[in-house]
Design a protein around this nucleic acid. Structure first.
Length: 420
RNA sequence: GGAGCGGUGGCUGAGUGGUCGAAAGCGGCAGUUUGCUAAACUGUUGUACUAGGUAACUGGUACCGAGGGUUCGAAUCCCUCCUGCUCCGCCA
């Protein structure tokens, strides 16, 4: 949620519109302004009526205490009509307010000035590239061919029990993912992240707090009967841990991490990445989340990005850092750097982490504040990123460590994890 | 799943229809005292929205788990829901 006080001033209003335009979001300026103005108008009306009612009700109490029954009855009759008018005005207010809140909750975050212009992912900007594109003396297979040939992943039975885009890991690869989880968590623990094991089923308000609801509700698994959803990322439970709380300045920054499964319906991606382990309904990942003072959020966001990169560096994977352009940015983020690893088998870059600074956008939705040095309650800034996606990491390691005969060099993988 | 009792400010806890944003205590902040700390004493101390003001601030409205209802007026009465605790049942 953006700071809606921005809509009250012309400069603020222009800032919001400019950011929307850069994102390619065609929300009409008039719609927004009308809703904001209508809201303020009806609030004034309701408050005036309520003030009258309160003042006269107080007098009624006094009249009754003094036993002035005739005056009491007359005033009470008069106040009935005020009460009626107030009731009608309040009903209108709730409609207007709801309309305004809906509009507001669907408004994306304001872009950081550093976000490059651009309409789609093709205009994302490469910030840096780390490592060389690995060369092989033979034709490198994509991970799914290796996995199938070596009986590492049982795609067929995954589909049998759960449907398309589900899979089963067998033996060594199951163990590899488990080991990678430990490796990543231990690495981040050393960098100061505190581990949490969290529920992976959350209430609607959590999904709202981090920005998944209401605009993108179709992309997630929601259990209608219970009003609960399977988390699409550990970001949701981790960030909402502090919802409705006022944190102490001295406790910031707070760095949390969790290894969780993630569930995504992948609606609208039919036919995309249908083979392999790249786009699935359930995968595992380590999520990093920071709660920080506003003035430190840029620094902390860069630090979190570096923390995610450390995993790739330790495993010797070639990757690049991308600054997402305005048109490719997520709804809740103010600025995002994606980490993409080079996949020698797929022969393309693959997103394995997305590190975002949400500024106060999520904090405002989830009501996460802190008492600043001046003693004032202020929204904190939230930052998060994957550190990193386990499934894609597994896929990458298979491609990086395959032998000419199509088998996997497990010893080399083990050695990397042990040494790092 | 059944039964019972609760949910009030940062915390503890009073309040069962009117002057209650809400007693009291604790905590926090400021001051007096003090070599320093502590103690004592005095004052002060919620949030959001809204109107005005450059601002400090001033006025108004709302908030006693959430949402509805009754009433001129609700923390207080009624309904629904959520949630906590205790006991029973079931169970990894």
């Amino acid at each position: 949620m953006i700071d809606y006080q921005l809509l009250k001033s012309d400069e603020g209003f222009q800032r919001v519109l400019q950011s929307l335009a850069r994102r390619g979001d065609a929300l009409s300026a008039d719609t927004l302004k009308e809703a904001a103005d209508a809201r303020r108008k009806i609030i004034r009306e309701v408050e005036a009526l309520a003030a009258e009612r309160n003042a006269e009700s107080k007098r009624l109490g006094e009249l009754k205490a003094q036993g002035k029954d005739a005056e009491f009855d007359a005033l009470r009759e008069k106040m009935k009509s005020v009460a009626d008018r107030l009731k009608i005005a309040k009903e209108e207010e709730s409609h207007v307010e709801e309309n305004f809140q809906t509009l507001l909750s669907r408004l994306p975050n304001i872009l950081d000035a550093e976000v490059p212009d651009g309409k789609s992912e093709s205009q994302n900007v490469v910030v840096r590239e780390v490592g060389d594109i690995p060369r092989f003396a033979f034709d490198v297979k994509p991970h799914y061919e290796i996995a199938e040939a070596e009986n590492l992943v049982d795609f067929e039975r995954g589909v049998k029990i759960s449907g398309a885009r589900f899979y089963v890991y067998n033996d060594k690869i199951a163990r590899l993912e488990r080991r990678l989880a430990n490796f990543m968590l231990d690495t981040h623990a050393a960098a100061g992240y505190s581990e949490r094991s969290v529920p992976i089923i959350v209430k609607d308000e959590c999904m709202f707090g981090t920005g998944q609801f209401p605009k993108f509700a179709d992309e997630y698994y929601r259990m209608e009967k219970d009003g609960l959803s399977l988390i699409p990322t550990g970001e949701v439970p981790l960030t909402n841990l502090y919802a409705d709380e006022i944190l102490n300045d001295a406790d910031l920054p707070i760095n949390l991490m969790a290894f969780t499964p993630c569930f995504r319906r992948e609606a609208g991606s039919a036919g995309k990445d249908t083979r392999g382990l790249i786009r699935v309904h359930q995968f595992y990942k380590v999520e990093l989340v920071k709660f920080v003072r506003p003035e430190e959020s840029e620094k902390e966001w860069r630090a979190l990005t570096a923390d995610a990169e450390r995993i790739l560096q330790k495993l010797g994977l070639t990757y690049r850092v991308l600054a997402l352009c305005a048109g490719d940015m997520g709804f809740t983020s103010s600025i995002t750097y994606d980490l993409e690893i080079w996949m020698p088998g797929l022969k393309r870059w693959l997103e394995i982490s997305s590190c975002s600074n949400f500024k106060d956008f999520q904090a405002r939705r989830a009501k996460i504040r802190y008492k600043n040095a001046a003693g004032k309650n202020e929204y904190i800034h939230t930052i998060n990123g994957s550190g990193v996606a386990a499934g894609r990491l597994v896929a990458a390691l298979l491609e990086y460590h395959q032998n000419a005969d199509g088998s996997v060099d497990w010893a080399a993988i083990e050695k990397k994890i042990d040494l790092s």
